[in-house]
């Protein structure tokens, strides 16, 4: 019994060091925004792997067109008397669940708040195209933080993306093309 007892502090210390090192490595891992476009018919492939830290540094440096100081100017965020920011504020306090469901001959649309994420699903029945958009709520909030009514804060959204777990943000699957946009810590686009 005695040797086991004497080993315990050393084991606890090495476990603590191992845990700290693992957490430090996890915290410092570079996060990537991946885009992959494939065309099964023409066998075309486009893949882009952008380190988020790179995007975070570049976006504030761009002062061109509608993108200035890390914020993008959106022409009609109050389109047709619908205040998008007010809707987002309402969504923030709303309980999780389905908000919009549209089913007609042409397409099905579903907007919901699930597991702290805004989820949009569109099915175009004619082209058999499926679009799934999942945006973590922190990113939605970052997009409208410190902005005027007609702006989106891209820089803040990218910073917020650094802190979300591995997730698929956009997936489009159709007969012609498949598109996937996702976040993880791998520097390749392996799924």
């Amino acid at each position: 019994m005695k040797p086991t007892k004497s080993l315990f502090p050393a084991l606890a210390l090495s476990s603590a060091i191992l845990l700290t090192a693992t957490l430090a490595m996890a915290a410092s891992a570079t996060r990537y925004l991946h885009v992959k476009v494939t065309n099964p018919t023409s066998h075309e492939l486009v893949r882009v792997n952008v380190p988020l830290i790179l995007a975070e540094k570049i976006i504030p440096a761009i002062n061109h067109g509608e993108l200035r100081d890390g914020k993008i100017h959106i022409g009609h965020m109050n389109a047709d008397e619908v205040n998008v920011r007010a809707i987002l504020d309402a969504l923030k306090t709303a309980p999780e669940g389905e908000f919009v469901t549209v089913q007609n001959a042409g397409d099905n649309v579903r907007v919901a708040k699930e597991h702290g994420q805004v989820v949009v699903h569109v099915l175009d029945k004619d082209s058999k195209e499926n679009v799934d958009v999942t945006v973590p709520w922190d990113v939605v909030e970052a997009l409208v933080s410190n902005t005027a009514d007609d702006q989106l804060n891209v820089e803040a959204a990218i910073k917020a993306l650094q802190n979300v777990g591995d997730t698929t943000l956009v997936r489009v699957s159709g007969s012609d093309e498949n598109v996937r946009v996702w976040i993880d810590s791998r520097n390749t686009d392996s799924e």
């Binding site: 570079t30 492939l45 486009v46 893949r47 882009v48 380190p51 790179l54 540094k57 570049i58 520097n187």
Partner: peptide
């Protein structure tokens, strides 16, 4: 802004078109 940030990034494929 881009070059020093890119220099600090880990090695890897940035863009592939096939």
């Amino acid at each position: 802004a881009a070059i020093p940030a890119l220099n600090e990034c880990p090695d890897g494929v940035l863009v592939e078109v096939k």
